[in-house]
Computed example of a mutant assay.
Amino acid sequence: MHTDSPPTTRVLYLAGWGRSGSTLAEGMLDQVPGLVGVGEIKFLWERGLLQNRRCSCGTPLRSCEFWVEVLHEAYGRIPDDDELRELDEASRRFRTRHLPGLLLRPAGHTSRAELRWYHEALSQLYRAVAKVSGADVVVDSSKFPSYLTALLQAPGLDVKVAHIVRDPRAVAYSWQRHKEDPDAPNGELMPRMHPGCTALYWSAWNLATERIAHRAGLPYLRFRYEDLIAEPDATLRAVTRLSGVPATAVRVGERGELFVRRTHQVSGNPVRFRSGAVPLRLDDEWTTGMAPRHRQLTAAVTFPLRRRYGYRDS
């Protein structure tokens, strides 16, 4: 898995706290020539290969022609279960609970030798995705600020950060909902979280993403889910400019529907399984459905970052 001087692979990293619209944003970006959206690559080893969950094309990942070709290009074969567990364990070294230690490391810090094999494996994987897809830029919606630090240490990756944010009250309400996950084992629902906990995560993840990107001197753009829905063409053009490929107009129908082709996203919101005409509407159910005490708690915990991102009290 070692290469002496890997060619550069451009990666657009979609960052942000969960339920902020990254899966939708990635599906839209995948329509842009030169970009390929492949979901939350951080979960490729466990959810994708060990659990053999479905690719967004609808095929179990081990049988998906795209991912089989990618893995053979990267490693000569699909890694066996022991290798996958080792890759997943290395990936878990870049989880949220390790974020404080990662943030305290000095800029330019490199990983210990014991993880260099992992970073080289990541480099090979992203390079293979670009080659097999024929894309100029790989779009990864893993979101974790901690995983971003892993990508920064992978040789040959040119990383840029597109940071999506959403009103924290809408995010907190979404985390309270009972949502089916059609891809989860044993028919499990998507995880739920108390609004107070969600508000803390929203603040910590977004601040950590800003700090890591700025400290590393990465090209960085923050954009809002609400603007993506209200002005999809202008918002996507800004993100596309950041990625470095020519901007292309988004196909939006007369009724505000977005025309999405089949993708090969590893993991993410169940919306990734949808293709064809997808309604592009603002999900603002929280404005009428959220309990006042939860709205007030979320607003208090996320202030003033919420205000800095343009979300007012009303």
Rank of each mutant, 00 (worst) to 15 (best):
M1C: 10
L12Y: 01
A15Q: 14
G18E: 15
S20F: 01
L24Y: 09
G34M: 01
G37W: 01
E40Y: 05
E40A: 05
C55S: 02
S56I: 07
T59Q: 13
L61P: 09
L71E: 02
A74G: 10
Y75P: 05
D81R: 15
D82A: 15
E86H: 11
L87M: 14
A90R: 07
R92S: 12
R92M: 10
R97H: 12
H98K: 11
L99D: 05
P100G: 09
L103A: 06
H109S: 15
R116T: 10
S123I: 02
S123F: 03
V129H: 04
S133M: 00
V138W: 04
V139W: 03
S142F: 13
F144T: 05
L148H: 03
T149G: 08
L152D: 08
D158F: 09
V159H: 00
V161Q: 03
A162K: 07
A162P: 10
H163R: 06
S174W: 01
D181F: 00
D183V: 01
P185E: 02
G187I: 04
L189D: 15
P191Y: 10
P191H: 02
R192P: 06
N206F: 07
G217V: 01
R222M: 05
F223K: 05
E231C: 07
R237M: 04
A238V: 06
V250F: 01
G253D: 05
G256V: 01
L258R: 09
V260R: 00
V260Y: 00
G268W: 11
N269E: 14
L280Y: 13
D284C: 11
W286Q: 06
G289C: 13
G289D: 12
R293A: 15
H294V: 02
R295G: 04
R295E: 13
F303Y: 15
P304V: 08
R307P: 06
R312A: 15
